[in-house]
């Protein structure tokens, strides 16, 4: 389980290679998800996005989420990288990836990790629109997305 919370950007291909090299045995599948900064929010033009987090708890929660995924699926490894600080339009925010012998475990567990990250990892986004920063409100859909996992 690799978890990184960092300000700097990442090269997804390199990180996925590291995940592959860290696996207990050669994975037959790695699925990955990358989240980017959109250029709009509620039909308004976004200039930048600033992400705050609770250092310490963030890493702890991301490890807990990774462990939960590994209990639910036969995974060979997981990777979560989440950035904080000021980001620009199109920047990478998050990379989540799962490695397994077969594709289904990798597909499903990546979605599981993202669904839990969205509701349990202590990050807060602030959007810059027309030179003003506003905190992003949580979405009910994100809470509801957890229900499909029946935990």
């Amino acid at each position: 389980m690799i978890v990184k919370v960092q300000e700097k950007d990442f090269i997804a291909e390199d990180e996925i290679q590291k995940l592959k090299n860290n696996c207990m045995e050669t994975p037959g599948a790695i699925n990955s998800f990358i989240g980017y900064v959109r250029n709009f929010s509620n039909n308004k033009k976004l200039t930048s996005l600033t992400i705050e987090h609770y250092a310490g708890m963030t890493e702890k929660m991301l490890l807990e989420i990774s462990a939960k995924a590994s209990q639910k699926w036969p995974l060979l490894g997981t990777l979560i990288i989440h950035r904080y600080g000021k980001l620009n339009i199109g920047d990478q925010i998050v990379l989540a990836a799962s490695a397994s012998l077969h594709r289904n475990a990798a597909f499903e567990s990546t979605q599981f990790i993202m669904d839990y990250l969205k509701t349990q990892a202590p990050f807060w986004k602030s959007e810059e629109i027309n030179n003003q920063n506003k905190w992003v409100l949580s979405r009910k859909e994100d809470e509801q997305a957890l229900k499909k996992w029946g935990d």
């Binding site: 998050v94 990250l117 969205k118 349990q120 202590p122 990050f123 807060w124 986004k125």
Partner: peptide
């Protein structure tokens, strides 16, 4: 994560924040 009824002690670290919005 805790709730209003969670017991707290002198050495605890308690954090208050809005619902999270990462990802």
């Amino acid at each position: 994560f805790a709730d209003l009824k969670t017991k707290i002690n002198e050495k605890d670290e308690i954090a208050f924040f809005p619902p999270v919005t990462g990802g």
